[in-house]
């Protein structure tokens, strides 16, 4: 089977630091792929390189077998790749609805929208509220409140809701549960399963091994800027995975798990 998203020989350097060192990457259609690795291993750099947020110095990226060359996150979004970045990428002073529709605002129908370029706020607010309620993720007073008045977990919920609402080909989540409580984490994991059942593949970066082993179909172990191995969570234990990740244990030689 052809991977839906594929990276080959990706290199990204920041000055003297090599964040990605000839890294390969494969995401299969319909799967949940977890990416694990130590802090600074280059996980965020990897997903930024495939989602247009940074332009890799070397290497190639393929979407559905076609070579792509994103120069901005906007292009990746247009191609159907939706990303929740570790930093969340939200404008603190703007409202939840504004943030959810940033860069793809809805305009009023008819004259006001076409000629006066007026935004359709009621519709954007309605959809944003529906999405958040559907997720059951949040306790939010008002969809028009500024994002900066939300708690860290609520912000993360909004960012995940944004990705889930718009992703059509691939959804990338960089540590989506890092700031969430137990109940909220559960909701996000359910959401991930739900997105998968819609046939959309997901890349999940997480340091939380129980979460990873619960939802992942395959686990990409990242170490020192490249893919060390890919394992099937059914064949290994969590402590095996951590041992590979930290270099305490030799990685299995076959890189593709079934």
């Amino acid at each position: 089977m052809e991977p839906i998203l594929k990276g080959r020989g990706l290199v990204k350097r920041y000055g003297k630091v090599t964040a990605l060192d000839h890294c390969d990457f494969d995401l299969m259609p319909g799967e949940i792929l977890a990416v694990i690795g130590d802090n600074g291993a280059g996980k965020s750099s990897l997903i930024k390189a495939v989602s247009g947020a940074v332009i890799p110095d070397e290497g190639e990226v393929f979407l559905e077998g076609k070579k792509i060359h994103f120069t901005s996150p906007i292009q990746a979004r247009e191609a159907g790749i939706e990303t929740v970045y570790q930093t969340l990428a939200m404008s603190p002073a703007l409202s939840i609805a504004d943030n959810m529709f940033m860069g793809r605002e809805l305009r009023k129908p008819g004259f006001m929208g076409k000629w006066m370029r007026q935004l359709d706020r009621p519709e954007m607010e309605r959809r944003a509220r529906d999405k958040l309620t559907e997720l059951g993720l949040m306790t939010i007073q008002n969809i028009n409140q500024a994002v900066e008045t939300l708690s860290g977990g609520q912000r993360q919920g909004v960012a995940v809701a944004r990705a889930a609402a718009f992703g059509s080909k691939v959804i990338i989540l960089d540590e989506p549960t890092a700031a969430l409580g137990v109940k909220e984490s559960r909701k996000v994991l359910e959401l991930i399963q739900d997105v998968k059942s819609r046939g959309i593949p997901i890349i999940l970066i997480s340091h939380n091994m129980p979460h990873v082993f619960e939802v992942a179909d395959r686990i990409h172990v990242h170490r020192l800027g490249k893919r060390l191995c890919v394992i099937n969570p059914k064949d290994y234990t969590m402590s095996d995975a951590v041992a590979f990740m930290t270099g305490a244990k030799e990685a299995p030689t076959q890189t593709e798990a079934a």
């Binding site: 901005s72 996150p73 906007i74 990303t83 990428a89 939200m90 404008s91 940033m102 860069g103 793809r104």
Partner: peptide, 10 residues
């Protein structure tokens, strides 16, 4: 507000 966040969010 935050040019980097704006860029990443499209």
């Amino acid at each position: 507000d935050d040019p980097e966040a704006a860029e990443l969010s499209g």
